[in-house]
């Protein structure tokens, strides 16, 4: 079994290597691509968790629609469009959407890494430049409301991993709880209604028994038979 799993990983790596060798000659990398790839792996972990969740909970067509909608909403509230940053600042609903947006954390990671990879000449205050939108990283940092601190890298990656784990927990709960009727099990609605009806039955029987006992004590009639216990108790 271990050898089989090992060969599986080798095969995956082989396919990847084949593709990389085919596409590498057209590349001229001068960005720290390993950081970009690592950050996107964290984002992918979160996004795939959401995909698992909706694919389990919904039927395929609805799952696709839901996924596309989520990605679009996540991009809208990622804070990259500067007008939307200004408009939803202070609104708790939009702020929550922004915090749940995977793209918000991914874009912050990549943008800050880009800032860190440039020299100090690009990080001067905006008035130092003739055209601040083309030259000042600080101008864009202030515009997007990002925090230029090294700890943000760890925090953002942790947020992405946390989102991914949360979506996976939702997916597992959906796997256990959704579509129970199709697995030959009773749905939770049926279970709850059954429990409620049993509870009402027991309560009604006790009420009836109390009425009978009170009647017996008032009338002195001892020949009445007790109410039988239900079979499910």
């Amino acid at each position: 079994m271990n050898s089989f799993i090992f060969s599986f990983f080798i095969l995956s790596a082989g396919l990847t290597l084949f593709f990389v060798l085919a596409s590498y000659p057209i590349v001229t990398p001068n960005l720290e691509w390993i950081f970009c790839w690592a950050f996107c792996c964290a984002a992918t972990f979160a996004i795939s968790g959401f995909g698992y969740f909706v694919s389990i909970a919904l039927n395929p067509l609805k799952a696709q629609l839901c996924t596309v909608t989520y990605v679009l909403v996540a991009v809208m509230f990622s804070g990259l469009a500067t007008t939307s940053v200004l408009s939803f600042k202070g609104n708790p609903f939009f702020m929550t959407l922004s915090y749940l947006s995977i793209m918000r954390w991914l874009s912050e990671l990549i943008f800050l890494r880009q800032v860190y990879s440039l020299s100090l000449a690009w990080r001067m205050p905006p008035p130092c430049y003739e055209n601040e939108t083309e030259s000042s990283e600080l101008h864009w940092l202030l515009m997007f409301g990002l925090t230029p601190v090294s700890e943000v890298f760890y925090l953002d990656v942790a947020m992405l991993l946390l989102l991914g784990i949360t979506f996976r927990i939702f997916a597992f709960v959906s796997l256990v709880t959704c579509n129970r009727n199709k697995r030959g099990l009773r749905t939770y609605g049926q279970i709850i209604s059954h429990r409620l009806s049993c509870l009402c039955d027991v309560w009604f029987r006790k009420l009836l028994q109390m009425t009978v006992v009170s009647n017996q004590t008032t009338e002195g009639d001892s020949e009445m038979s007790p109410i039988p216990e239900p079979s499910y108790l």
Partner: peptide, 11 residues
């Protein structure tokens, strides 16, 4: 990234 990965993970 979001669209391609999420659609692939639906499978």
């Amino acid at each position: 990234l979001g669209l391609t990965i999420s659609i692939a993970s639906l499978r």
